[in-house]
Design a protein around this nucleic acid. Structure first.
Length: 504
RNA sequence: GACCCUGUAGUGCAGCGGUUAGCACGUCGCCCUUUCAAGGCGAAGAUCGAGGGUUCGAAUCCCUCCAGGGUUACCA
């Protein structure tokens, strides 16, 4: 009664880094296994020796690890199975289910050209196909090079399968070409190896990109020829660039690479959330998903069929990737348990060489660190912002946004001296808290007959270098009297250098 | 060219014979008693690719066309 074990695989080819489409495919396989139970196999499809590199393999593994998509078996190298692949091909040949194609590259080109001029598609190497077994054997024995091609059954037959996403798919044999199994040098080709390996690894569900939807018919033919039951297939819509073309690093740059998101301060859970939303919907209005919720809600039936676009801009840095991805990252950072965020911020600060040992677990400033992160996170988009816009919280050196200086300080020539005055007032406070600091600032504003906002915005700019950030009095309490007083004290010259340095 | 897939706001998705065609991101505006790329509220934005049918009634079913994508490799 029990159905065969669920075994899925992610099978990238190391002809490039892990791109977002590959990441999404891996994620869906992973979610499928987490939801229904089963084994996730990782297989590296390195049959194209020309284009495969170890570097690419490493970067794919790195991307998967960062995404948190752990596999149960592998990584297997497809190339490790070539002897097996060759054996299977020879069997097919011996059984008359495949044939030797002696056509040279030039022959093939001529055949295709002729087919083209006759307005029909090239389907098979007819001359080779017509060879008797004896002739074929003889020519092979003579050392004539050949490709082994699958012999697609003739007649009115068709392959039919039920795709988990696209529904019933049918293709007539006459529309399927005699695809190659083995190159003249004996190395196996994709459509053939996948089937060999998926059989060998007892894969039960093949979840992959829609670019393989048409290939599936060939593969099913292979399963039948090999006397095997095909797995369940489910194809995912493709992810394209804003110009509707395929995402490519050469054309679209770093946005397409998964590791870019890591390097730009994304949180894995947020990126998983974003990836899941491309081409899939829970059927409800929910879009913010923790990974547990994602697993719970995931289903192949929620996968859509139309190709999607990652909406990024190559000219606007604020939109270097899809805004929704950025938004989800901000939302996850803001909503996740603070304790889960802390280690990521720590790693980011360490990477930027801003880490202070007193902030570590058990350190005497640990609590301060937690508060600072908590204060900062509502308006932060990526982890990079902790060391970027939020740098003034963690270091005495920070960049100054000249637009902020212009807007919040230079708009009133008296402001600089007033801020220095404020510094002095703060210095005199016996108990420096959010409340006392606010009281002092407002009182000074009253005395000067100016709006408190003037001092508020000016202070923020001098203290953090930027015009936006947490409410000022929270910021003051967080940084503490000493730092606030010192930073405000040099308001007179603030902004003359692009970077503020303070020796404390 | 052939075969196949897809076509709902700028983008991602809902809706699957009867809705003022929903949601999210983005955009714009207002509010938060003067920060903001934060939060709250609201608005604009879609003749449901086009044209024909079927039906009392169609985004939803059928046909044709158009557009985009995939496959058509001794790439994967």
């Amino acid at each position: 009664m029990s159905s065969p074990a669920i075994r899925v695989r992610f099978a990238p080819s190391p002809t490039g880094y892990l791109h977002v489409g590959g990441g999404r495919t891996a994620l869906f396989n992973w979610l499928f296994v987490k939801k229904y139970g089963g084994t996730f196999v990782l297989r590296i499809e390195d049959t194209d020796k020309e284009r495969s590199t170890d570097d690419n393999t490493r970067s794919i593994l790195e991307g998967l690890k960062w995404l948190g998509l752990d596999w149960d078996e592998g990584p297997y190298l497809q190339s490790d199975g070539v002897e097996h692949h060759k054996r299977v091909a020879r069997e097919l040949l011996a059984q008359g289910k495949a044939y030797r194609s002696f056509a040279t590259a030039a022959d093939l080109e001529a055949q295709r050209k002729r087919a083209d001029s006759e307005k029909r598609p090239w389907q098979r190497d007819a001359p080779s196909r017509a060879l008797s077994a004896e002739e074929s054997d003889a020519r092979a024995a003579k050392g004539e090079p050949f490709t082994i091609r699958f012999l697609v059954p003739g007649g009115e037959g068709a392959t039919v399968f039920e795709d988990g996403v696209y529904g019933t798919q049918e293709r007539k044999h006459k529309d399927t070409e005699d695809f190659a199994l083995l190159r003249p040098d004996g190395s196996p080709l994709y459509n053939f190896v996948v089937v060999c390996d998926d059989i060998h690894m007892q894969i039960s569900h093949v979840i992959r990109g829609q670019d393989h939807l048409s290939n599936t018919h060939k593969q099913i033919l292979l399963y039948e020829a090999l006397g095997q039951k095909p797995p369940v297939f489910a194809h995912l819509p493709l992810i394209n660039a804003p110009d509707r073309s395929k995402l490519s690093k050469r054309k679209h740059g770093e946005v397409v690479s998964v590791t870019t998101y890591r390097d730009k301060g994304f949180i894995p859970e947020a990126f998983r959330n974003f990836l899941a939303l491309i081409g899939w919907s829970s059927g409800t209005d929910q879009e913010f998903f923790t990974t547990e919720e994602l697993i719970e809600a995931f289903s192949l039936s929620g996968v859509s069929r139309g190709n999607a676009i990652v909406n990024f801009s190559e000219t606007d840095p604020r939109q270097w990737t899809d805004r929704k991805a950025l938004h989800l990252n901000a939302e996850h950072m803001n909503k996740m348990p603070l304790q889960n965020l802390l280690p990521m911020v720590e790693a980011e600060l360490k990477g930027a060489d801003l880490w202070d040992e007193s902030w570590t677990e058990g350190g005497n400033r640990r609590e301060w660190f937690q508060n600072a992160v908590d204060l900062l996170r509502p308006r932060i988009i990526t982890l990079k912002d902790f060391s970027g816009a939020g740098r003034a919280y963690f270091d005495q050196t920070y960049d100054i946004d000249s637009a902020a200086v212009e807007k919040n300080i230079d708009k009133d020539p008296n402001l600089r001296p007033w801020l220095v005055e404020l510094s002095g007032r703060f210095k005199g406070l016996p108990d420096f808290t959010k409340e006392t600091a606010e009281g002092e600032l407002r009182q000074l504003a009253d005395e000067l007959g100016i709006k408190a906002g003037l001092l508020i915005n000016g202070s923020r700019t001098v203290i953090t270098g930027v015009s936006v950030g947490p409410p000022l009095f929270d910021l003051l309490a967080c940084l503490g009297q000493e730092t606030v007083v010192a930073r405000l004290a040099r308001a007179e010259t603030f902004g003359r250098e692009p970077t503020s340095r303070l020796e404390v």
